[in-house]
């Protein structure tokens, strides 16, 4: 504060109360992180998605509901599928919550380069989901391995667990793309759940084409990676586990690029 009493002449600089800021990617990432951790809705969905798989393995073991031909890895990760849906819902929430509340205006006013906004959101979401899904799914496998009886084939946990964890950021980013496209929370959440759930549910209606319909969803990629019996080639196509993950990652990337192009142009 200056002790001068005279009103500053036009054009003369006041003493700056704030050092010159900048609004780059790192700042946008910090912004997104603060927004993420300051909302109950996003925290709850993240917590439930992370904590779901391990108790799920306990439940499967306790109820002995595992199919005889199922692997230990597939049975232990039964609840990874609903967790994956929550990851996609989280992606939609992160962007639709902003549209619904009008926060998107403050966000874009603070970070006018919209590509940066979307990139920061996506980076945060993907890193967070991968970092949480990996220990979460590994824990579920260890719990299942300890509790499930030895009559089942083991399945190969490595490197499959890394791929399993990778389906979460992919599903989250898919949710983000759909959320930014639809902008309306309820609509976006319904859509992402439909994409994850319906191919598996409606697949049998398509007869021999079932494996093409059911095989393309992120859920199918997850089930193939867990070497679950539900991912048999006649049900989910003969595309291998890793190529399936690549396929899902590929169309998610396309969806993100399309949404980003739209987000650049649209009024907020």
């Amino acid at each position: 504060m200056t002790s001068e009493i005279v009103a500053p002449a036009p054009g003369r600089r006041r003493e700056a109360a704030v050092p010159a800021g900048r609004a780059g990617f790192r700042e946008a990432l910090a912004f997104e992180w603060i927004k993420f951790r300051s909302l109950r809705s996003t925290l709850w969905v993240t917590a439930v998605a992370t904590l779901l798989p391990a108790p799920g393995a306990v439940l499967v073991a306790a109820t002995e509901s595992i199919q005889p031909e199922e692997t230990v890895l597939g049975g232990a990760l039964t609840f990874a599928t609903p967790a994956l849906m929550l990851a996609a819902v989280l992606g939609a929430l992160v962007v639709c919550g902003e549209y619904g509340s009008g926060t998107m205006r403050s966000t874009v006013a603070a970070v006018p380069r919209r590509g940066t906004v979307l990139a920061a959101k996506g980076t945060l979401l993907a890193c967070l989901l991968y970092a949480l899904a990996l220990p979460s799914c590994a824990a579920a496998y260890l719990v299942g391995d300890a509790l499930l009886d030895d009559t089942h084939a083991q399945g190969d946990p490595l490197p499959a667990l890394f791929g399993i964890a990778a389906t979460f950021p992919v599903a989250g980013l898919f949710g983000l793309a759909v959320g930014a496209l639809i902008r309306h929370g309820a609509g976006a959440i319904t859509s992402v759940i439909a994409v994850l759930l319906l191919p598996g549910m409606l697949g049998p209606l398509f007869g021999p084409a079932e494996r093409w319909v059911a095989g393309v969803s992120p859920t199918a990629a997850l089930q193939k990676l867990t070497q679950s019996s539900e991912a048999a080639p006649e049900l989910a196509g003969s595309l291998g586990a890793w190529p399936s993950l690549l396929l899902v990652a590929g169309y998610t990337a396309l969806a993100l690029m399309g949404t980003a192009a739209l987000f650049q142009r649209r009024d907020v």
Binding site: A17, V18, P19, G21, R22, A23, G24, E27, A28, A30, F31, W33, I34, K35, S38, L39, R40, S41, G97, E98, S101, G102, T103, R105, S106, T107, A109, A110, V111
Partner: peptide
């Protein structure tokens, strides 16, 4: 722009802290 530029589930302080971070402003602001 309008009073509704804030998410109802977020605290006022968190809202401002996020905006401060977005432009690299010190937290004391």
């Amino acid at each position: 722009l309008d009073a509704k530029g804030v998410h109802g589930g977020r605290s006022a302080r968190a809202h401002l802290a996020g905006l401060a971070a977005s432009n690299g402003l010190p937290r004391r602001r």
